[in-house]
């Protein structure tokens, strides 16, 4: 739809000790693509996502963004946003402060600017009435939307989700799917881990099936 290659992985390998998790994996994502990573537990889905988000460093291989190699572990690039499985919202901050913390601290926005910038996202994700609440006062689905809003505020080009449907009621799964598709319209490239095959296939442009590596 948009055409440019936002993310390429070339021959990425990762081991923990002697256990090989990912072996020479290559893939390529165009802008606006939704990639579902499907597979059983222990197949390295989460590790792959953590490599892309820079929470682990690869043993070998290259990450390429728009034709240029980059290092996902560098805190100063904000290419990749992440929505964690249990959201990891900051419990000591209100919804608004969760969302505006990084723009204020990292991008040096004023509080007023950051809150203004957050408003359309809050509206879009139906979070406006929760903005003064703290995470413990929210339901799972609301927390997830806050986590998405928080990640979006750093204007990532790629958004990763670790098991976004695993903790949700069935009726909320459809809502999440709508969010993914809306973000796709804006050109967001998304990577989703799931072991819900149906869901994975329903939203994805590309599917990556992973299996544990045989010894």
């Amino acid at each position: 739809m948009f055409g440019n290659k936002v993310l390429e992985l070339k021959n990425i390998s990762k081991s923990f000790g002697t256990r090989k998790i990912i072996d020479k994996l290559s893939l390529s994502l165009d802008q606006g693509d939704i990639l579902s990573i499907i597979g059983p537990s222990g197949a390295g889905k989460t590790t792959l996502l953590r490599l892309i988000a820079g929470l682990e460093s690869a043993d070998s291989g290259k990450f390429i963004h728009n034709g240029k190699e980059f290092d996902p572990t560098d805190r100063n690039n904000h290419l990749v946003g992440m929505v964690f499985q249990d959201y990891n919202l900051f419990p000591n901050l209100s919804v608004m402060d969760n969302i505006t913390l990084a723009p204020i601290m990292v991008n040096k926005m004023s509080k007023a600017e950051a809150e203004k910038a957050a408003t359309p996202v809050l509206d879009q994700l139906d979070l406006n009435k929760f903005k003064t609440l703290y995470p413990y006062q929210l339901s799972g689905g609301q927390k997830q939307r806050v986590a998405i809003a928080r990640a979006l505020q750093m204007k990532p080009e790629i958004l990763c989700y670790d098991e976004p449907t695993s903790a949700l009621d069935p009726e909320l799964v459809g809502k999440v799917k709508d969010i993914f598709l809306k973000l796709k319209q804006t050109g967001m490239t998304q990577v989703i881990i799931t072991h819900d095959h149906q869901f994975g296939k329903a939203v994805a442009d590309k599917i990556l099936k992973v299996e544990p590596i045989e010894k």
């Binding site: 988000a53 820079g54 929470l55 805190r75 100063n76 904000h78 990749v80 946003g81 992440m82 964690f84 990891n88 919202l89 900051f90 913390l101 990084a102 601290m105 990292v106 928080r150 990640a151 750093m154």
Partner: peptide, 8 residues
Amino acid sequence: EAAQVLGL
């Protein structure tokens, strides 16, 4: 980790 991904 959440703080790291946000670039803090």
